[in-house]
Design a protein around this nucleic acid. Structure first.
Lengths: 264, 264
DNA sequence: CGAACATAACACCCAATCACGTTACGTTCT
DNA sequence: AGAACGTAACGTGATTGGGTGTTATGTTCG
């Protein structure tokens, strides 16, 4: 499954090196990987394009962490196995309860993995403001789809704003599947306000709610408070979460599901 | 540009044969093209999938015209040069007037060609309920995008329903670019009602309006009346329209622009 | 200015995909 | 049952496209 080409592999390693060292020279990289500087140039152009790093003269420097966290194309491939595990657990949770047919999905890459799992189910109606999710659900041509429109935000690849909120408010949802950038002291936080408002609206319209969150989110902070952990029917985390954090989570959330990560 | 592979060419010819004769046998086709029946099977599977024809035992029969006309994947490649010509004229019309910045686009393939032309312009805001258009505009990452959400209709690949109408009503549009399936006695007609309602809402919210329509639409009929030709600031047709029809059109529309079709 | 660096254009290689045929096995007619 | 037809699976040859190097030409720095 996670079959990477040689180029992808090299680019991933470059990303790591840049993240660690802050700056790396192009000729160093060319030397290290035994390729031409031209190849490195192309790698850096690509990574720069995707917002993973900044290409500067003679090398590349790290992008500020906050920017990375917002960037969809970066997030998309990050911790993919973990996200799939979490999504599988969420799908199971939903399928156990067969009275749930309208599922709202927010604009997170974790939930995107869930969209893939649910999109083949003809009996479901999926509601989302996330363009990649809309794309895949439409492609699958099985589940019914309600798109939440509004002002498109290229950074998040999703639709926000008053119009989006309005649209969400006009729908009754059985279960909302939500993620967040940061979990801290029993509450969720997000770096930007616009997508957060849509998430809140989804929660408000939902009879049930699931929080899908991977272990990396517990060591972060973000600006805007989104919701409290106790508001969710269940919180789903991957099994790479550490003991202490899991303990703390169990004390503040109603029900915690730990999704086993399958290593490739 | 229009570089077709041998297989595409054969499939196009099959489509024609089926359209003309109503039904063709698989072994006839295999014989005619000097290929195996298996290859024809695959061709028909594909064409059937795309809704161009219906595969039945021992052969293929034509799909009712109405169904063909509704089918997006079929429409997408139909009269492409004409659509491009019309779109170019529409783009010119809009660019001549530099006070126009919010453009609404309906769910038609003609207008999709226009979306491609406008999506690179950073000063524009594009509004649409058409998934392929949303996709391409987001991809271009230049023009601002407002997505119209709602219930997704796989047949048209666009969003409809009360929620979509509501969303459109909350926006002020400078110019609405609309198409239709049929033009008949000075009015527009559409085979389905749901997309029509969104088109009407777009027109209502728009200061100006353009009708983009190719010559094939004048020899058709459809069920639901959409609007009168006189409601548009300008009607854009391709140059393959015949004299009489053009004359009639000129008498019922305010302003008619004939877009020259470039032959490849 | 000259050295270091960036980019554009072209050519090549390899791997993945596609189109097609062949065969073998199901399925549906009469 | 037997003929006609459909489908699944595999092999193969052609085609495509991504990834890389090379060279030639710009561009920026000191």
């Amino acid at each position: 499954m996670s079959q990477r080409s040689a180029a992808d592999h090299r680019r991933a390693e470059i990303s790591e090196m840049v993240a660690e060292q802050g700056f790396v020279r192009i000729d160093e990289l060319a030397d290290h990987f035994s390729v031409t500087t031209m190849t490195i140039h192309r790698d850096l152009d690509d990574l720069n394009e995707r917002g993973v790093l900044s290409k500067v003269r003679s090398g590349a420097k790290a992008t500020p962490l906050e920017v990375i966290e917002r960037n969809v194309t970066f997030r998309q491939h990050h911790l993919l196995d973990h996200k799939r595990a979490i999504a599988a657990a969420a799908a199971a949770w939903i399928r156990e309860r067969d009275d749930l047919s309208v599922v709202a999905l927010d604009d997170s890459t974790t939930v995107l993995a869930l969209a893939d799992l649910l999109s083949t189910d003809e009996s479901l109606t999926l509601v989302t403001n996330f363009r990649p999710a809309i794309e895949r659900i439409a492609e699958a041509d099985a589940a019914k789809l309600i798109g939440i429109g509004g002002a498109f935000d290229p950074q998040f690849q999703s639709f926000h704003g008053a119009s989006a909120i309005e649209s969400v408010r006009s729908i009754q949802v059985d279960v909302a599947c939500i993620s967040a950038t940061s979990v801290w002291r029993g509450a969720l936080y997000n770096p930007a306000e616009a997508p957060l408002l849509v998430k809140r609206a989804m929660l408000r319209q939902a009879e049930h709610s699931l929080l899908l969150i991977d272990h990396s989110k517990f060591s972060r902070r973000a600006l805007h408070r989104q919701a409290g952990l106790e508001e969710f029917d269940a919180v789903i985390v991957d099994s790479d979460i550490d003991e202490d954090t899991l303990g703390a989570l169990r004390s503040s959330a109603e029900h915690v599901i730990v999704a086993p990560v399958v290593q490739r």
